[in-house]
C-alpha cells in the first residue's frame, strides 16, 4: 500500500527512516536515533495511546511491513532491528493500556464447555454501541460509504491477523482455526475470499477497493483496532489473546451483518453490495461455534496458562471496537463525518 501521511513527529521519523535505504550508515543511525527519541517522548506524553493518531499510524506502518509492504520501501525493513525496537517500545505501553482498560470477566474453570459457555455469556452481555442498528435504520448513503471506508482498513485483509496464530498453536485448536480461516479465504476460491467479497461491495458503491487506499482518512481508533490484532497475532506469547479475539469477533458478528445488509438494501443497493454481509450472517454462525469451543475452549484446556489471555483478547476486541463504534455514532448523530477528512473518492464529480 501507499505510505500513509505522517500524523506527527513519530510517524514522520519512521517514514524518514524507511525511505533512507540508500543513505549512508551514519544518516541512517541519526534517523533511527530520532525515531527512538521521539517515540520515547510521545509515549511519555500521550493523552491516550489507544487514540493517538501519530503513534498508531507509525505502528500501523511498521506492522504493514509484515503484510503487503509499503510502496517504495525495502521489504528488509520488516526485520530491521530499528523497526523491531520501535515496535517493541510501543507494544509495551499498548499492551498495558489494553490490559488496564478492557474489563476481563471472571474466569471459568478450564474445560472446553466452561470456556465456551463463559465466552457466550460474556459476548452476549456486550452492550456496545450499535453501528449495525444505525446502519439498518438511519444511515444516509454518505454515512454508509463512510462505514465501508472505516471497515476497509481491516476487511481488505480480513482474516490475515488471525492466520498468524496457525503455526503457533497445536492439536484440536489448530484444526479448528484452519477450518475457520479456510472458509474466510473462500475455501480456496479467490472470488469467495471474504476480503474479495468486501472489495466487491466497495466497488459496488463506487469506492476504491485498492488495499489501504483510504488510510489517511480513518481516525486513530481504526488503526488501533487493526494494530491490536497484529500485535496479538504476531507474538507467540499472545496466542491466547488472538484466539479469544477471533472468538469474540465471530460471536458478535452474525446479527450485525444481517442489519448491515438490511441497511444497504434500504438505501437501494442490490446483491452485489449486500452479498458480503449476507454471507457473513451464515458463515459467522458456523464460525462462532467452532471458535468458541474447538478453538478457544480447546486452547484454554490444552494450555490452561492461556485461559486468562483468551478472555483478555475477547475483552480487548469488544472494548476497542466499542470505542470505534461510539466515535462513529457520535459523529453521525451530530451530523458530521466520522472520517478525518470527508470522503471524496467515488463521489460523482
Amino acid at each position: 500500500m501507499q505510505i500513509p501521511q505522517s500524523r506527527g513527529p513519530v510517524s514522520a521519523a519512521l517514514i524518514d527512516l524507511l525511505r533512507s535505504s540508500d543513505s549512508d550508515s551514519s544518516t541512517e543511525a541519526a534517523l533511527a536515533a530520532a525515531l527512538h527519541e521521539r517515540t520515547a517522548v510521545a509515549l511519555a506524553t500521550t493523552d491516550d495511546l489507544l487514540l493517538d493518531d501519530d503513534l498508531q499510524t507509525a505502528l500501523f506502518m511498521a506492522y504493514e511491513l509484515r503484510y503487503s509492504g509499503l510502496d517504495g520501501v525495502d521489504d528488509a525493513w520488516e526485520w530491521h532491528p530499528d523497526v523491531l525496537s520501535f515496535c517493541a517500545d510501543v507494544e509495551v505501553d499498548f499492551e498495558i493500556a489494553l490490559r488496564e482498560r478492557a474489563s476481563v470477566p471472571e474466569l471459568p474453570e478450564p474445560g472446553v464447555e466452561n470456556v465456551a459457555t463463559a465466552l457466550f455469556e460474556f459476548t452476549g452481555a456486550d452492550s456496545g454501541p450499535s453501528v449495525s442498528r444505525y446502519l439498518a435504520k438511519k444511515a444516509t448513503d454518505e454515512q454508509a460509504r463512510e462505514f465501508l471506508i472505516l471497515r476497509s482498513i481491516y476487511q481488505l485483509k480480513e482474516a490475515d491477523p488471525h492466520t498468524w496464530a496457525i503455526p503457533r498453536i497445536r492439536s484440536r485448536a489448530k484444526a479448528a482455526l484452519v477450518e475457520i480461516q479456510a472458509d474466510e479465504y473462500g475455501g480456496g476460491r479467490f472470488d469467495r475470499m471474504h476480503s474479495e467479497l468486501f472489495a466487491r461491495t466497495m466497488r459496488g458503491v463506487g469506492l476504491d477497493a485498492s488495499y489501504g487506499h483510504y488510510i489517511d482518512q480513518v481516525p486513530a481508533i481504526t488503526l488501533t483496532s487493526s494494530n491490536m490484532m497484529t500485535m496479538f497475532g504476531t507474538h507467540r506469547r499472545l496466542r491466547g489473546a488472538i484466539a479469544g479475539h477471533l472468538a469474540a469477533f465471530e460471536m458478535t458478528s452474525s446479527q450485525p451483518n444481517r442489519l448491515y445488509g438490511n441497511g444497504f438494501r434500504r438505501l437501494g443497493y442490490d446483491k452485489n453490495v449486500t452479498y458480503y454481509f449476507d454471507e457473513h450472517v451464515e458463515a459467522d454462525a458456523v464460525h462462532e461455534q467452532i471458535a468458541a469451543r474447538d478453538l478457544a475452549g480447546s486452547l484454554a484446556t490444552d494450555e490452561p496458562e492461556l485461559l486468562e489471555d483468551v478472555f483478555f483478547g475477547a475483552a480487548a476486541g469488544l472494548f476497542i471496537d466499542g470505542l470505534a463504534g461510539h466515535q462513529q455514532i457520535d459523529a453521525w448523530t451530530a451530523g458530521v463525518s466520522a472520517l478525518r477528512t470527508p470522503a471524496t473518492a467515488g463521489l460523482p464529480a
Binding site: E179, A182, D183, G187, R258, E279, V281, E282, A283, A285, V286, Q289, I290
Partner: peptide, 16 residues
C-alpha cells in the same frame, strides 16, 4: 451449502 462446514438450525427461529 456455500461452504464446506455448515450449521443447521435446530432452534427453529433462523431466518435462513
Amino acid at each position: 451449502p456455500g461452504r464446506k462446514t455448515v450449521a443447521l438450525c435446530r432452534c427453529g427461529v433462523s431466518t435462513l
